[in-house]
């Protein structure tokens, strides 16, 4: 008691301790260890030792550049697709859902009651060569007689889109639901048609949700490896698959660690660029008529 009275200023820091300890134990220490590993050299039999082995990083850029680019592309396309599907969905639930809102939201997250792996395996069945989707597309001549969906880029991107859709839909719903409906009335009162009112008021006000949703979708999607493995071929391998095989199959830990760091850096840079773009968009949303 006396101690806390005499050192009042310390109390906030003491309260921060558990959080800081958690962060140190589960974030700083693993990051340090990962960084340490990524600069090791050697092989599985004689063991890896620390050697400032920067060539792990240069290899990451030269040998796996294609995988990096593909990962960012797939994640980008899947994020865009998830956004285009989720926005009308979230909009409809927020503005027209009425007393069904909670039930409809439950439906959005219902797939999460089944594990990730099983859900992706189910897509394997859906997209299978003998499945009804391919059948229907063949009948409509949208794919050729021997055309297929499984083991294509489309299948991988569709799988990622599907798996991360709720991460996009929920933040969008929250931001749309918070919008005061009278603001939309006010816009219409001030001669904005429904479309203009949406573009000038509803959409700008939902940007925080768009931002959160894209991050929550893009970041895990860029590091995903399940969809490429189950729904694609070696030609669709993403950087997540490479890291996984370097760790588990080749047991080249330094290389895997370096790849992980590069992926992380890539995502951080992409996110910062995106944040700047969205940020300036929000400032200028009204002046650009």
């Amino acid at each position: 008691m006396n101690f806390f009275h005499r050192h009042r200023a310390l109390v906030p820091y003491l309260l921060l301790l558990p959080g800081l300890a958690w962060l140190a134990l589960f974030f700083v220490v693993p990051m340090y260890y990962l960084g340490y590993t990524s600069l090791q050299a050697g092989d599985l039999f004689s063991g890896y030792t620390f050697a400032w082995a920067w060539d792990n990083y240069s290899d990451a850029f030269t040998l796996y550049r294609g995988h990096f680019i593909r990962s960012l592309e797939y994640a980008g396309v899947a994020t865009l697709a998830a956004f285009l599907i989720s926005y009308p969905l979230a909009y409809w639930i927020a503005f027209r859902g009425g007393r069904w809102k909670n039930f409809l939201l439950l439906l959005v997250i219902a797939p999460f009651f089944v594990t990730y792996l099983i859900r992706t395996l189910a897509w394997k069945t859906i997209l299978a060569d003998q499945g009804f989707v391919v059948d229907a597309l063949r009948t409509l001549h949208l794919v050729g007689e021997d055309g297929r969906l499984l083991a294509t880029t489309t299948a991988v991107v569709a799988g990622i889109t599907y798996n991360f859709l709720p991460f996009m839909a929920l933040p969008l719903y929250v931001s749309l639901e918070q919008i005061d409906k009278r603001l939309i009335e006010a816009a219409q009162d001030l001669y904005a048609s429904r479309v203009k009112a949406f573009l000038r008021v509803t959409f700008p006000l939902s940007l925080p949700g768009v931002f959160a949703g894209t991050l929550l979708t893009f970041i895990p999607a860029a590091g995903d490896f399940i969809n490429a493995e189950l729904l694609g071929t070696p030609r669709q391998l993403m950087i997540g698959n490479v890291i996984q095989s370097q760790f588990k199959e080749v047991a080249n830990y330094p290389q895997a660690a370096a790849l992980s760091f590069v992926l992380m850096a890539g995502i951080v840079i992409a996110v910062l660029l995106y944040a700047r773009a969205v940020g300036s968009e929000r400032v200028t949303a009204g002046t650009a008529a």
Partner: peptide, 25 residues
């Protein structure tokens, strides 16, 4: 007629100012 086709403007009860736009806008 929808509101945007009427030569009428409204001052709303809670003002309903657009929070993302400046006063000028």
């Amino acid at each position: 007629l929808p509101p945007y086709k009427r030569d009428v403007n409204t001052v709303f009860q809670s003002y309903a100012l657009f929070p993302h736009l400046s006063i000028f806008e």
